[in-house]
Amino acid sequence: MSTITIEVVTDGNIEPCRVLCDELMAFQQSKAVMAPELFDMMNFDTRMRRSYDHALRTHVLIVKDGDVPVGYAFSSVSNVEQEDLGIPAWAPNQEQEGSKGFYPDWIETPQRIGFLSNLYLRDGYRSMGLGSKLFNMSMTWLESFSDVDLLFIYVSNGNEEALDFYLKQGFTYSHDVFGGFIKAVYRKLEK
């Protein structure tokens, strides 16, 4: 029997997440009920790498079965300015008339915001409590910053299981992004 471990990336090498991130994009595409073809543009380089490179602070956890990566969580902290209120660096430009961007109208800028950007486990590792462990470790990291009092998670359309999980963890539905392609949930932190 292999040993399951969770490692924190401390050297900036997120390359072990490449295949897993691409699997996550394919998983999200398989769940999507709205515009699944948009996921054809999304992969490690366009989503995780781009977001990682643009963030002020990053936290990556990798779940390994022996030496094989089988899951990961990626969290970040970014400074959101007024000009950033529409589309983050990793997102495809999919603005539609009347469609909200990634942040609700009540966001005050500038503001440091924490994000749980990706959480993924391969099939066969999803019923072992690892997702909750990754989520809790990510929240502990995000909540550790005195200058962050707002967290966001963006859930792809069709992934109702993930949306329900985050809502049960104390997040609140905020708004639809790009007319429902993504659901935004948030949690205000008491500081």
Rank of each mutant, 00 (worst) to 15 (best):
residue 22 D to Q: 08
residue 76 S to P: 00
residue 24 L to I: 00
residue 94 Q to A: 12
residue 38 L to Q: 14
residue 108 E to I: 15
residue 67 D to V: 14
residue 16 P to I: 09
residue 107 I to T: 12
residue 26 A to F: 02
residue 17 C to M: 05
residue 68 V to H: 12
residue 72 Y to S: 00
residue 91 A to E: 07
residue 99 S to C: 08
residue 96 Q to V: 09
residue 26 A to R: 12
residue 93 N to W: 00
residue 96 Q to H: 05
residue 23 E to I: 04
residue 49 R to K: 15
residue 66 G to S: 09
residue 84 D to Q: 06
residue 37 E to G: 02
residue 114 G to Y: 04
residue 41 M to E: 14
residue 89 A to I: 10
residue 30 S to R: 10
residue 25 M to C: 15
residue 28 Q to E: 13
residue 62 I to T: 06
residue 51 S to F: 10
residue 106 W to M: 03
residue 14 I to C: 10
residue 109 T to Y: 03
residue 32 A to I: 09
residue 87 I to H: 06
residue 39 F to Y: 13
residue 84 D to K: 04
residue 101 G to R: 08
residue 64 K to W: 02
residue 50 R to A: 11
residue 106 W to A: 13
residue 86 G to T: 14
residue 26 A to K: 13
residue 49 R to N: 11
residue 91 A to V: 02
residue 59 H to K: 03
residue 99 S to R: 01
residue 115 F to I: 01
residue 26 A to C: 07
residue 17 C to T: 15
residue 35 A to Y: 08
residue 57 R to L: 12
residue 80 V to H: 10
residue 81 E to P: 01
residue 21 C to K: 07
residue 32 A to M: 06
residue 55 A to G: 03
residue 115 F to T: 02
residue 60 V to W: 01
residue 95 E to W: 09
residue 95 E to H: 11
residue 100 K to E: 12
residue 41 M to R: 13
residue 15 E to Q: 12
residue 93 N to K: 11
residue 66 G to H: 04
residue 74 F to L: 03
residue 88 P to A: 09
residue 18 R to I: 00
residue 92 P to L: 12
residue 96 Q to T: 13
residue 40 D to S: 07
residue 38 L to V: 10
residue 26 A to T: 05
residue 81 E to V: 07
residue 98 G to P: 08
residue 99 S to T: 05
residue 27 F to D: 13
residue 55 A to M: 05
residue 28 Q to F: 04
residue 57 R to K: 13
residue 115 F to W: 14
residue 103 Y to N: 06
residue 75 S to V: 01
residue 88 P to G: 07
residue 61 L to T: 14
residue 44 F to H: 07
residue 42 M to Y: 14
residue 61 L to W: 02
residue 71 G to Y: 04
residue 70 V to F: 05
